[in-house]
Design a protein around this nucleic acid. Structure first.
Length: 250
DNA sequence: ATCTAAATAT
DNA sequence: CATATTTAGA
């Protein structure tokens, strides 16, 4: 069953914790692999950026409740050996001694579930609150970083712009403009209303909207290799950017 | 500080 | 090549 149920967000409203309650992010019983979760120091602490790809502490506190019915989706990392009951050594980092300070965080995979949570968070925050940090906090997914969310938000906005720019026909029409795996992932969750209502928010204020890697013209022609090209306007502001289109065969 | 867009990396 | 991460500008 899909979540085209008009009440899908009402359910979420009940489940989600009040904003005051979801400040502390941490979780225990996350087993060694999920111990990669770090970077979850107290929000008020202003330490030097521990964002370096090193020094992973395994802070393990327990996040009280906040997951009544919906299990908090664990971020799926690649290259990690889940499922195996064996105590897989975390890479080569011996936990007892010095943390291998050259550990790199595994690549995050945005599963449909994780994306759904992302969209739900965005849906509940206003358009002005839907920023990476806030989204991340609302999602309250262990191990998820602000950078992860920012990156995903970037892609998501591009997706929305693309949809908006082409007046795609999800509603009845058969004007499919894109069919990538990402688009299907994004299409799997309904788009929050604020993004649909505030078209101008998503679009760049000046010049042509950024289309992406390809677009379909009004003549229904596929145009690829879209590029920005600097062009001086002679006077006034020197060097505005305009969008130039290069047809596929060129 | 942190959001966003662009540049790298996987 | 697509997708995620990292860097740079605002």
């Amino acid at each position: 069953m899909r979540e085209d149920n008009p009440n899908w967000f009402l359910r979420w409203e009940e489940e989600l914790p009040s904003p005051e309650e979801l400040i502390p992010i941490s979780q225990t019983l996350i087993t060694p692999h999920l111990a990669l979760a770090f970077q979850i120091g107290s929000p008020n602490h202003h330490l030097g950026s521990k964002r370096t790809t090193a020094t992973y502490h395994h802070h393990q506190k327990l996040q009280p409740s906040t997951t009544p019915t919906t299990p908090t989706p664990q971020p799926m990392m690649m290259n990690s050996d889940f499922g195996g009951g064996d105590s897989t050594d975390l890479g080569s980092g011996s936990i007892g001694g010095e943390p291998a300070r050259t550990l790199k965080r595994p690549r995050l995979v945005w599963t449909p579930q994780l994306h759904k949570r992302f969209v739900d968070a965005v849906g509940h925050l206003g358009i002005k609150n839907a920023v990476p940090k806030t989204i991340m906090q609302l999602m309250s997914v262990e191990g998820l970083t602000r950078e992860n969310v920012a990156s995903h938000l970037q892609k998501y906005r591009l997706y929305l712009r693309r949809m908006q720019g082409n007046g795609n026909g999800i509603s009845g029409g058969h004007v499919i403009v894109s069919d990538s795996a990402t688009d299907r992932l994004f299409a799997s969750s309904p788009v929050p209303a604020h993004f649909l209502n505030h078209h101008e928010y998503l679009m760049p204020p000046l010049e042509h909207p950024y289309i992406g890697k390809h677009m379909i013209t009004q003549q229904n022609q596929v145009v690829r290799n879209l590029r920005y090209e600097d062009s001086e306007h002679g006077n006034g502001d020197g060097g505005r950017k305009i969008l130039k289109l290069f047809p596929a065969g060129n």
